[in-house]
Design a protein around this nucleic acid. Sequence first.
DNA 1: TCTGACATCAATGTATACAATTGACTCGAA
DNA 2: TTCGAGTCAATTGTATACATTGATGTCAGA
Lengths: 229, 229
Amino acid sequence: MQLIESIMAIEHKTRTQLVAEAIREKILLGEFKSGEPLRQAALAEELNVSRIPVREALLQLEAEGLVNFEAHKGATVTEISASQVDEIFDLRALLEAELLRHSLEKLSEDDFQSAEALLQELEAAMAAGDTQAATGHLNSAFHGKLYSKAERPQTRELVEQFSKNSERYVRMHILLAGGLNTAPEEHRELLKLCRAKNVDAACDYLIRHITGAKEDIKNLLIKMEEQGA
Amino acid sequence: MQLIESIMAIEHKTRTQLVAEAIREKILLGEFKSGEPLRQAALAEELNVSRIPVREALLQLEAEGLVNFEAHKGATVTEISASQVDEIFDLRALLEAELLRHSLEKLSEDDFQSAEALLQELEAAMAAGDTQAATGHLNSAFHGKLYSKAERPQTRELVEQFSKNSERYVRMHILLAGGLNTAPEEHRELLKLCRAKNVDAACDYLIRHITGAKEDIKNLLIKMEEQGA
DNA sequence: TCTGACATCAATGTATACAATTGACTCGAA
DNA sequence: TTCGAGTCAATTGTATACATTGATGTCAGA
């Protein structure tokens, strides 16, 4: 008898989903590097499944932009170029400002308080040196809170996808350049503008915030490309 | 001997790709209606393939937003709601304006001339009553020409995806409301502003152009939902 | 040495067969 | 009647086996 399972509606995860999560994680953590080929048979054996769920997972990951899947050639981890980072961050700035614009009026004091709580968690994590995992997660949770009342599900999905994707770059940034120094004060300032319900100023500031992060990362990448080549 | 095939690099399309095209076409043409379930076995038999490529095609179409794929429940054609149309067209306005902004400076007289040629084709098609297929295609070709120098591949891909997606609504619009009346003059005006290299005015006008189409379609959908329900 | 056709092999693409899940239906008990 | 456990069929999920493709290497001939 499966008492536990019958009590709460356990949603049976398919192997495809599990495989997708596993591979996604390894890509985001940098364990699978840019350009690296992902062999179906190897992944299948490692994860104890057949190649079918592996293939389907790779297709999903391709849709998320983490993987390139070419017919008869196989899948590779999506490569990073400075110009792509540039574009992605511009898109984020554009879309996130749009989300904020639609959400800001409807945000309540409760929302601001939980946003502030997230900020404190974030700062605490930074102080504790737990930049790696926590920052990306808490950072997007904070931003997400600000957009939570936007009622723009497709836009949010796009933004989340881009965010998850840029996490790779950000992580690299943190790892190699010693932390994203600007973030803390900027987040405080952004929150202040939101609390004041100053829509235009908040959106402008948000755009500058994201664009600033973009410039940091882009410069770093360009430097790396020069050294590498 | 396969002379023809050996001469030009024929790219062997996988069955998955063929199946995806077939289903996509049927969805865009309205042959598969919103909310309709897509049974893997039925599709497989109809297209003379096994269920594997059908499943993979459905996953691709889900990524394109044409299909919803729920684990253990199967795939259905994505449903349309007025609020989704609203959001999609807002996104298009935002992203296409961004593309135009980045492209406009670099557009040459040649580009304008081929854009104008496309406009004439479009008007000819309209006059000939060939609204259905031609309009969607020519319309996006015209817009695409204006964005062609933007060097923003990811943004363009997004826009193209949304465009292809909204084709369904537009088609419905044309079909049931008797044609998108405003387009011809608006396109001319937009082209004029672009030729004048008046970036801000052109982007503003483009946004109004797209938003106008949105309002038309949204009103229609709301009317239909009232009648239907 | 170079070229190009052919053989070979690793990897992907797909068919078939089987397992697992869902939802509808039945039926008996409260 | 109403509820819930249990069965069954339809459908999806996955393993296995086979087919096909593309890359590499070999070798004959110029």
